[in-house]
Amino acid sequence: MALDKFGIAKRIAKELKDGMYVNLGIGIPTLVANYIPQDITVVFQSENGILGMGPYPEEAAIDADLINAGKETVTVINGGAFFDSAESFGMIRAGKIDLTVLGAMEVSDQGDIANWKIPGKMVKGMGGAMDLVASAKNIIVAMMHTNPKGESKLLPKCSLPLTGVGCVKKVVTELAVLTITPNGFQLLERAPGVSVEEIIAKTAGKLIVPDFVPEMVIE
């Protein structure tokens, strides 16, 4: 069965390793913070200027001066730090952030990503996405395999304006885990009960399918 958004977040959480500094985007990526394995410590960065971002506050502890990049009220953990946005993006550019997880409208089999603009419709702006994808050491995209019309979001070439080129390393969808290779998407894992045929049918970009594709292990 295909995963729901929580399942996608759980699978991505397995990519986290002890000691990582991680930036999570808005949407499914934010959920990843709920599934960090108990035996490891990761530190979350919020690009407006927080390192050591903690969970949402208790009602009584809400502080208007403390929000994350999604404009949500948050807390800061012991050992956290505040700084300005210029320094925050310095951290990102200089490779201090180990992993970025973000959503996408389209990903190409060359690792290009589009997630900020649909021409003719509202342009909300790229926020920090262009900076993050151009600089993070490791970028994982969390998204659905197809759009609401049923069309593949894993393409030979993005049709929407790009956010970055050749930057995505891995994609986790409700159906599959795929890595980007010089020869296109490589299928690494399939969601429990999802067939390789379904993934092939819903992937428009070049797809390398090994003889054996294991099922994702999600607790």
Binding site: E47, D84, S85, A86, S88, F89, G90, I92, R93, M126, G127, G128, A129, M130, D131, L132, A134, S135, G164
Partner: peptide, 24 residues
């Protein structure tokens, strides 16, 4: 891009007219 906006402002503060960034 947000990092470019922040850094372009920071550069003005530092008296540096231009710089290079991979964003975009």
């Amino acid at each position: 891009p947000q990092g470019t906006l922040a850094t372009s402002i920071q550069m003005a503060a530092m008296g540096i007219p231009a710089y290079f960034t991979p964003a975009g």
